[in-house]
């Protein structure tokens, strides 16, 4: 497997004299799903948007395979990003969006056969869960080398989450993926390595007990 890396180094971000990120570094590697956990406001989304290049931060250097890049989002075929809230235009049909992102619908329908009926619908006519699922699928199957997913499991029903986790596991062989989510069980299921965002830094998580040790969980359920 060829190595392909997107690295965001020394990310500093503060707002209203509060330090959100204190020189944190993160990376996406082809073949690996990186999971990011953290409490609300710990800087997970900020870090992803800094890496994506749409958020101005005090300091951040982004490299792809060692080459420094600016505005990584604007480099065709490099990286895409799922924001926390809906980003698809409500007045467009799924068909037109699918064409725009040039994704392979055969893969979508192999994992989610019940989505076939949605194609001629406008985004505004989809349920919140379906809209979220389509958003994740569009970015995951788009021809980019890296995908950053901010809360991809939110609003999606359990049956679809199970299928989505299978698809994520397949797609990691084609691209580097970073996921953040508060549904930590799903995130831990698919992630090959996990970091916890705390006090503006990222902490490598070796096993579930570290999440208790660092105060993210009160106790381990099982």
């Amino acid at each position: 497997m060829s190595s392909d890396t997107l690295l965001a180094e020394n990310i500093f971000f503060s707002v209203a004299s509060k330090d959100i990120l204190k020189g944190v570094t993160t990376r996406a590697d082809k073949g690996i799903i990186t999971g990011l956990l953290g409490r609300n406001g710990s800087g997970k989304s900020t870090m992803l948007q800094a890496m994506y290049g749409t958020l101005k931060v005090q300091e951040c250097s982004v490299f792809t395979n060692g080459t420094l890049i600016n505005a990584s989002y604007a480099k065709a075929g490099l990286v895409n990003y799922l924001p926390q809230n809906s980003f698809l235009p409500v007045d467009l049909t799924l068909n037109s969006i699918v064409r725009q992102f040039a994704i392979d619908l055969a893969i979508v329908f192999a994992y989610f056969p019940d989505l076939k009926d949605d194609l001629n619908k406008k985004i505004g006519a989809l349920s919140g869960g379906k809209e979220r699922l389509w958003s994740v699928l569009l970015l995951l199957l788009a021809k980019t080398r890296f995908t950053l997913l901010d809360e991809p499991f939110t609003h999606i029903m359990p049956l679809h989450i199970d299928q989505l986790k299978l698809l994520l596991t397949e797609m990691k062989h084609k691209k580097g993926i970073i996921i953040t989510d508060h549904n930590y069980r799903h995130l831990l299921d698919v992630s090959d390595r996990v970091y916890l965002m705390k006090d503006g830094k990222s902490i490598y998580i070796r096993d579930y007990s570290d999440l208790v040790l660092h105060g993210y969980l009160r106790h381990l359920d099982e």
Partner: peptide, 16 residues
């Protein structure tokens, strides 16, 4: 601002 991610995800620079 969240809706702008649709266009960013099509790799259109903010300036463009």
């Amino acid at each position: 601002s969240q809706k702008l991610f649709y266009y960013y995800n099509l790799h259109v620079h903010k300036r463009t």
